[in-house]
Nucleic acid binder design. Structure first.
Lengths: 208, 208
DNA sequence: GGCGCTGGTTACCACCTGGTCGGGATTGGT
DNA sequence: ACCAATCCCGACCAGGTGGTAACCAGCGCC
């Protein structure tokens, strides 16, 4: 179906205040459930039930399941993007901002699980979020590469490592650590610290 | 349901040659399909159809869907384990053996997708493969830690990096690169080399 | 040559899925 | 007070799900 990240009708601001509030509740519940069981397995009825409405009631706000998914992803990236920009404006490094993002994520297991599950699912070419994740990775890799090229030019990137590889490794670490972190949810004593791991990774890639 | 990795009745060797062959075909098809769409979404009918039998025919060999999943995971780890041991016996390093494993995986997208999708899915505590993946990560982390401790004792681990963190980062890189690799399946020119990435990661963690 | 186990089949079950339809409240501007 | 837009629901649909029951063909051992 390849329903792109076009915001479905009814998902934008507008309508009554009640409706807008319900839409937010739906998105929260959808993030939670998609994270718990994945997009395919999650049912509209379950999402609707968690919000306290019927499933046609949900479909009134989001015309299809794929549209709901698109809205969820869109909102998430929007929120994260704003937070990162705020950190940058506060004078932080881009890589520092990434660490901070990871640190924030450590307090939102639902969202972490959502993206871990979804990015793996969306690996299939016909997944509704396939194009979204392709574009997302393209963007974040490009951004990280640009940043690491600056580091290299300042001589702060460890010799023998090119910026592209360094960028991909860093992003891979973020994704991979999420799985280890999620799997160890019930054994806190052996649960890895995602942010610390990312900082260690950057320390291994940089010279200072 | 937490169907552990107990081999279901009928999944072990035995019966007629025809039956054993069919079981292998089923496992191959299941690996493929689970990889394509995930465990939850995959249907027994689809797996059966790819083997050319009916879906109760499949259930004759594997008494439930979870049992089929268990058999798939079990066989995969068995095969990989043997290959790694062979590489070790050939005089290779454990970390080199990991690179070789990754290199082999690069020619089996179905299996890569299977484990990427499944390890994310199995993050949920009530997923049939949850315990399997917990144990799997515990095992491979422990193994890598032991190896990296030897490196540290030989002074080949970069100072400031402890073996546990290094092990987790390495495994995270393997998992994370899989997603980037799978997502770039249709853009070969920008597709990362998983094995090269792993080697670069190890180069960043070690001193030689 | 009979006989039990193996490898399937067709038919069926209860249940869940996303989505549609028509109607009935509620809301808020005029 | 009116009226249209918005919000939401119950009922329904076709289709897919894992699993079961009953049955039958053929293989191979006694």
């Amino acid at each position: 179906m390849t329903t792109e990240v076009t915001t479905g009708p009814g998902a934008r601001a507008g309508g009554y205040a009640k409706g807008r509030a319900t839409r937010e509740e739906i998105l929260d519940a959808a993030v939670q459930l998609f994270g718990e069981v994945g997009y395919h397995t999650a049912s509209l009825r379950e999402v609707a039930s968690r919000v306290g409405i019927s499933h046609p009631g949900l479909l009134h706000h989001f015309p299809s399941k794929a549209a709901l998914l698109a809205a969820v992803l869109e909102r998430r990236d929007e929120v994260d993007g704003l937070a990162i920009r705020a950190d940058l404006d506060a004078g932080h490094d881009y890589l520092d901002a990434l660490s901070m993002l990871v640190e924030r994520n450590a307090s939102r297991p639902g969202i972490v699980q959502l993206f871990a599950t979804l990015s793996a699912e969306a690996t299939s070419p016909d997944h509704p979020a396939h194009a979204f994740f392709q574009e997302r990775y393209r963007r974040v890799v490009a951004r990280s590469v640009a940043e690491l090229e600056r580091f290299r030019d300042e001589g702060r990137l460890r010799p023998g490592i090119d910026p592209v590889t360094a960028a991909r490794l860093t992003i891979a670490v973020m994704d991979g650590m999420q799985i280890q972190w999620l799997l160890a949810a019930d054994t806190p004593e052996s649960r890895p610290d995602m942010a610390a791991a990312l900082r260690a990774q950057l320390a291994a890639l940089l010279t200072d």
